[in-house]
Amino acid sequence: MTTPPDDRPLVLVTGPVTVDQVHQIARAAPSRQIRRVTTRAELAEHLAAAEVLATPAEEVPTALLRHARRLRWVHLWAAGADAALSPELVEHSATLTSSKGHGAVPLAEHALMLMLMLSRDAPRWLRAQRLRRWEPFAHGELNGLTVGIIGLGNSGSDLARKAKAFHMTVLGMRRGTVRPDGVDELFPVSRLGEMLSLSDFVVVTAPRTPETVGLLGEPEFRRMRRTAHFVCISRGGVADDAALLRALREGWIAGAGIDAHGVEPLPPDSPFWDLPNVILTPHNGTSRSETRQRGVDVFCQNLGRHVEGHPLVNLIDKQTGY
């Protein structure tokens, strides 16, 4: 007895998705056929028939999109879309969404960790520990300081609330005019320099888009206080690396905590490795399993909306990149 063909619309899933998560996706849309593909050959075989594709941003099959005439929606497991926005995807009629917000909590935690480590010069304790030396010293605290947050999306807004719990003054910069909870004053892009001059910490949580690339260059770093620290947890390239390197070497600013870098992986010969006033982490601010599960939850909620014909959330404007 032959099995009848499955004529339900096809949802293709690629990337680091577990068997349990595939079952979760299937439960969210019983009227859809869910197929997890693990190789490029499988993707090429099935994409032309697919209605939906959920994939890592860097694995969007650019060369195959011209054959994907039934494709109505592409979902990215990551929050940022910059790695996916090829001309082919921009021109394709498929709607684009991402898992924006799935890493907000751990990213805000990571920013606070870097801020605490920088304010207290935590590397000094670690060096003393390795040498078995008891070396108390006077250090700072976040209480009473001002943080300026560039980008008030999910992670920026979560960081604002957490910073208020540390008794900090919170300034924020965004294109919109809505001031999130925890933000004491909202600055438009035209007043970026003013916000920089008022901040003890400047934290970048904005996505990398044509509007934000190189947003912080030499003039901006010179506007910062010599006692201020720079922190980047979202995307490299928002700060010009050459200007940041000079600011750190020449003492325009006190130091930096950098999780997202202009070039990744950071090359072994990068001068940032050797700077004594810098704490580097390998774009590792989001947790692994928890963040991925929240991304699957976002997709499942949107998949239910798609099946019911409701508008999708977490839409990405292909022209602006966010």
Rank of each mutant, 00 (worst) to 15 (best):
2 T>E: 11
7 D>T: 12
9 P>E: 05
15 G>M: 08
22 V>P: 01
23 H>M: 09
23 H>K: 15
25 I>M: 13
26 A>F: 09
30 P>A: 01
30 P>M: 02
31 S>M: 12
32 R>M: 13
36 R>M: 10
36 R>V: 05
39 T>Q: 07
41 A>P: 05
45 E>S: 12
49 A>M: 12
53 L>C: 02
57 A>C: 09
60 V>S: 10
60 V>I: 05
60 V>N: 09
65 L>E: 05
66 R>T: 14
70 R>H: 15
72 R>G: 14
73 W>T: 05
73 W>I: 09
75 H>F: 06
76 L>Q: 03
80 G>D: 06
83 A>E: 07
83 A>V: 08
84 A>I: 11
84 A>G: 09
86 S>W: 02
86 S>A: 10
88 E>N: 11
89 L>S: 09
89 L>A: 03
90 V>W: 02
91 E>M: 11
95 T>Q: 14
99 S>N: 02
99 S>W: 00
102 H>G: 02
104 A>I: 09
105 V>G: 05
107 L>E: 00
108 A>Y: 10
109 E>T: 05
115 M>K: 02
116 L>F: 08
117 M>A: 15
117 M>K: 12
118 L>Q: 05
121 D>F: 03
122 A>R: 04
122 A>Y: 11
125 W>L: 13
125 W>Y: 14
127 R>E: 13
131 L>S: 13
131 L>A: 13
132 R>L: 05
133 R>M: 07
136 P>H: 09
136 P>D: 10
141 E>C: 13
143 N>C: 12
146 T>V: 13
147 V>D: 07
147 V>F: 07
148 G>L: 03
148 G>F: 09
148 G>Q: 02
151 G>Q: 08
152 L>A: 05
153 G>Q: 08
153 G>R: 04
154 N>K: 13
157 S>F: 01
158 D>W: 00
162 K>Y: 06
163 A>L: 04
165 A>G: 03
165 A>P: 00
166 F>S: 02
174 R>I: 06
175 R>I: 00
181 D>M: 03
181 D>H: 02
182 G>T: 04
183 V>D: 00
184 D>G: 11
184 D>I: 07
185 E>D: 12
195 M>Y: 06
197 S>I: 00
200 D>G: 01
202 V>W: 09
208 R>E: 15
209 T>Q: 08
214 G>R: 04
216 L>A: 00
223 R>K: 13
223 R>F: 01
223 R>D: 14
226 R>C: 04
227 T>S: 15
229 H>W: 15
232 C>W: 04
232 C>E: 12
233 I>C: 03
236 G>Y: 10
238 V>M: 10
238 V>E: 08
238 V>G: 05
240 D>I: 04
242 A>R: 15
250 E>N: 14
251 G>I: 01
253 I>D: 05
256 A>T: 02
262 G>V: 03
263 V>F: 03
264 E>Q: 12
271 P>A: 07
273 W>I: 07
276 P>D: 13
277 N>R: 07
280 L>R: 06
284 N>R: 11
286 T>E: 14
287 S>G: 04
288 R>T: 15
289 S>L: 13
290 E>L: 08
297 D>Q: 14
297 D>F: 09
298 V>F: 12
301 Q>S: 06
306 H>S: 07
306 H>F: 15
306 H>Y: 15
307 V>I: 14
308 E>Y: 00
312 L>Q: 03
317 D>K: 08
317 D>I: 08
318 K>Y: 02
319 Q>S: 11
